[in-house]
Design a binder for these strands. Structure first.
Length: 215
DNA sequence: CCTCGGATCCTT
DNA sequence: AGGATCCGAGGT
């Protein structure tokens, strides 16, 4: 914890993202998160921080959204306060990390799909890292790299949680963000609710392949 | 209960 | 194109 405090003092330009900032529709928050920082304090106390380079929005009336059919044990965090996490298990072996948006009672969130790491974690199995810049290029991969699982479900994004968000340190032009359709879903496939940082080598594989729009 | 399939990823 | 591997949702 003292490490975290010191780190914040050293980087006054990295302003923490608040719950209020996340209290908007997910389709607004998702593109705004591109270029922002996700930070994670690991078990050994070290801090990994990374630039968010790919996001997807999931909305209350969206059939692809886990909250579409109302609250359940799994998706409870989506109906909780904005600026908290929603972490779930997918395909029995990967986890996915979301930022909850909109007020309590409204089920919406932004899926973090890919990160460009500023610091490379020391003890990561080399067999998972043939290419260092792709270590977090996908929603399941980034959770594996940052050691994120359901223990972190429903926590506020805050240094005290060991997981937090910070605003962009430099402005990003709208033309640097590409908007396309979402990945891996079978419902509402036409909604253009995926955004990624143009030219980033860390966007997920399918995203690079499917890349269209903007120019 | 039982079955189906999923906001994935890696290997054939 | 298929397997790993768990569990929630929805129907019987």
């Amino acid at each position: 914890m003292t490490n975290v405090t010191r780190q914040q003092e050293q980087s006054p330009s990295s302003k923490i993202i608040t719950a209020e900032w996340c209290d908007r529709p997910s389709v607004q928050v998702a593109p705004d998160l591109i270029g922002c920082t996700l930070a994670r304090q690991m078990a050994d106390g070290s801090i990994i921080d990374a630039v968010i380079v790919e996001t997807e929005a999931y909305a209350p009336a969206d059939p692809a959204c886990h909250a579409y059919r109302g609250p359940s044990k799994r998706n409870a965090a989506m109906f909780g306060p904005p600026g908290h996490s929603y972490v779930y298990l997918i395909y029995g072996l990967y986890h996915c990390l979301n930022v909850v948006t909109e007020p309590v009672g409204i089920g919406s969130a932004v899926l973090i799909r890919a990160l460009a790491l500023n610091t490379v974690p020391p003890a990561l199995d080399p067999k998972y890292t043939p290419k260092p810049h792709r270590i977090a290029a996908g929603p399941g991969k980034l959770c594996r790299t940052l050691n994120i699982d359901r223990q972190l479900d429903g926590l506020p994004y805050h240094p005290d949680s060991g997981l937090w968000l910070a605003h962009r340190q430099t402005p990003l032009a709208a033309t640097d963000i590409v908007q396309t359709t979402r990945i891996g879903i079978s419902q509402a496939v036409e909604k253009p609710w995926r955004w990624y940082l143009k030219g980033s080598p860390a966007v997920s594989k399918k995203a690079t392949k499917t890349a269209v729009s903007n120019a």
